[in-house]
């Protein structure tokens, strides 16, 4: 079994090209997970455009992609109209909703391509674009990969996803204001150094993942002014990674105001926190153009 995870877009909220974001990248959320011959695409932010370009370079084989969206805010769908395989008749793109019968993601993707927003209508795309769902809460097996979703805290809602095969597991949890689900958010604010009391069901969802890709947009100082915006403190997702016993934590959905140096400092603080808990979790910042091999 082989499992490769490639980051095509790691930025949150809005694309941020420029010298200050050169190292970690300015494209918005898009992650490719390739498990054996199956390809899963997690979110379709502006990084999806470059994934499409790369897929064409890989060879003439038709593109088969299973597309999972955390939610449908702009920074998670904006790459789709520029995803070249969507225009090719041999491509097959499966757009998954969450639970049985959920077709919202397919509908909203097509909505952003109405003529008021984009010159090419969704119905003009030549690919075979199929609306599907993940079935019951226990999830679904897609080409041998167990796929589950988890309801998160974000304005309008969002979902985390777990992909697992042969004991190798990737959890993708972006746009999740974990801090709002703490047992005592006020206590966490009073004593930032204390371990956070996390929702047990979220810890269970992430338990034992080889890689947790998690929104870690804010520093402790920033979060105070942004409660309710839908994103967590990086320190809180660090505690999540430690308590769930994951192998690696990729801090994701970088704040558009954060420069590369700022992100390095944030990751440094998270590593100090991991060391304080005596954990072996490897923490790093998700970076555009980086590929990990798991298992």
């Amino acid at each position: 079994m082989s499992c490769f995870v490639r980051f095509w877009g790691t930025r949150g909220s809005i694309p941020t090209p420029g010298r200050k974001t050169h190292r970690y990248g300015g494209n918005t959320s898009c992650v490719e997970v390739r498990i054996d011959d199956s390809m899963f695409v997690l979110d379709g932010g502006t990084g999806l455009r470059e994934l499409g370009v790369d897929l064409l370079k890989r060879g003439p084989a038709p593109v088969r992609a299973h597309m999972l969206f955390s939610h449908m805010h702009w920074d998670h769908i904006q790459g789709f109209p520029f995803f070249v395989p969507a225009y090719l008749p041999n491509s097959r793109l499966s757009i998954y909703g969450t639970f049985t019968g959920d077709r919202r993601h397919h509908q909203l993707l097509s909505g952003q391509m109405s003529s008021d927003y984009f010159p090419v209508d969704f119905s003009s795309l030549n690919a075979n674009i199929v609306a599907s769902d993940l079935g019951p809460p226990t999830g679904r097996i897609i080409e041998g990969v167990a796929v589950r979703c988890f309801d998160q805290r974000h304005p309008g809602g969002s979902y985390a996803y777990s992909l697992e095969k042969d004991g190798v597991r990737v959890v993708y949890s972006t746009d999740n204001e974990v801090d709002l689900g703490l047992a005592d958010p006020a206590a966490a604010q009073r004593d930032l150094a204390a371990p956070r009391e996390l929702p047990p069901e979220l810890v269970a969802f992430c338990r034992g993942a080889d890689l947790l890709i998690a929104d870690g947009q804010y520093t402790d100082d920033e979060y105070v002014k942004k409660v309710g915006w839908g994103h967590p403190r990086a320190s809180t997702v660090t505690d999540l990674a430690v308590q769930a016993g994951v192998g690696q934590l990729a801090i994701f959905h970088h704040d558009p105001m954060h420069s590369d140096d700022h992100i390095d400092a944030l990751v440094g603080e998270c590593r100090e926190r991991v060391a304080r808990w005596g954990s072996g979790v490897i923490v790093f910042a998700a970076r555009e153009g980086m590929t990990l091999k798991l298992g």
Partner: peptide
């Protein structure tokens, strides 16, 4: 210091 499979290098 992070084990990877591949990456675009930066200064």
């Amino acid at each position: 210091e992070i084990r990877i499979y591949s990456a675009e290098l930066r200064d």
